[in-house]
Design a protein around this nucleic acid. Structure first.
Lengths: 147, 147
DNA sequence: TTTGCTGCAAATAGTTTGCAGAGAC
DNA sequence: GTCTCTGCAAACTATTTGCAGCAAA
């Protein structure tokens, strides 16, 4: 079974288990988030769904994202400039590499991060629960364009 | 000379060099940011200055922070929950360890970060310009309180 | 004196909420 | 049939902006 199909099943089960209803709008949002290779924004999700549900309201997108976040099934990526992007495919915190030109977001593999977390815990005497690591730069295709 | 005094001098020189006026309100903001051990928010800065300038407006704080950011003399730490904190003492990007209980922010030493940045650049084929690394956890004193 | 700065208030953008009707179960 | 969900519009919060008077240089 395709990866995103599994994610959709997991999310639906969580919704049912917690007595939430499966509405077409909610399903459409879950569907986009579960695929979410591109880390869509609320606007992206809303725009995409409006093709099928012209009356879909932004409030519904926001409400469902809050709900899915509360289950830990969506990762919210808030950026300093105020923009928010979402990942419902890999909802656990992981590093991101962000192109400041085209806004593309890539997920790198970084095995040293766990080791680093331990070092930080020792040094600061904190109990570390989670982290957030973003690299900002320019991707190779934007670099080639030299815009 | 104390560290923050140097920072204040550096910032004042930049302002003068760029023909910006040195007003009492601006100085008060620079002063707080240059000390900024605690990574204050705009509200923090505003509240603190209102003791001396009861008419100080939030708009002035925002405007001056924008100005200082444009010189690279203040680091803005925007968080996913929408809150913003500022560091005018160490304005270059550096990792933070944040207590989710008392909101204290500590700066750890992390020398592996440069190495990690290089690895990411190779792996993703990005030109990395800057990064943002935050660890979220509970500090030892909040841990002891067990609230 | 000149020009930029401040304080106020209004505008803005992103997100949340109240309410009445629609729809899932 | 019950109770949650949705869509709409209004509310809200953090930040920005227009303007007239004020003050640094």
């Amino acid at each position: 079974m395709a990866d995103h199909k599994k994610r959709i099943e997991i999310i639906i089960r969580k919704l049912r288990d917690n007595c939430y209803k499966i509405t077409p709008q909610r399903m459409a949002i879950v569907d986009i988030l579960a695929r979410s290779e591109g880390h869509p924004s609320v606007e992206d999700i809303h725009d995409q769904i409006k093709k099928d549900f012209p009356t879909m309201s932004l409030a519904t997108v926001y409400r469902n994202i809050v709900l899915l976040k509360s289950f830990g099934e969506v990762l919210e990526l808030g950026f300093p400039d105020g923009s928010n992007r979402y990942d419902g495919n890999k909802p656990d915190p992981h590093p991101h590499v962000i192109c400041i030109k085209c806004k593309k977001i890539v997920d790198p593999d970084l095995d040293i991060l766990d080791e680093m977390t331990k070092k930080v815990a020792v040094e600061t005497d904190f109990t570390i629960l989670r982290h957030r690591l973003d690299f900002f730069g320019i991707c190779s295709s934007c670099m080639a364009k030299k815009v």
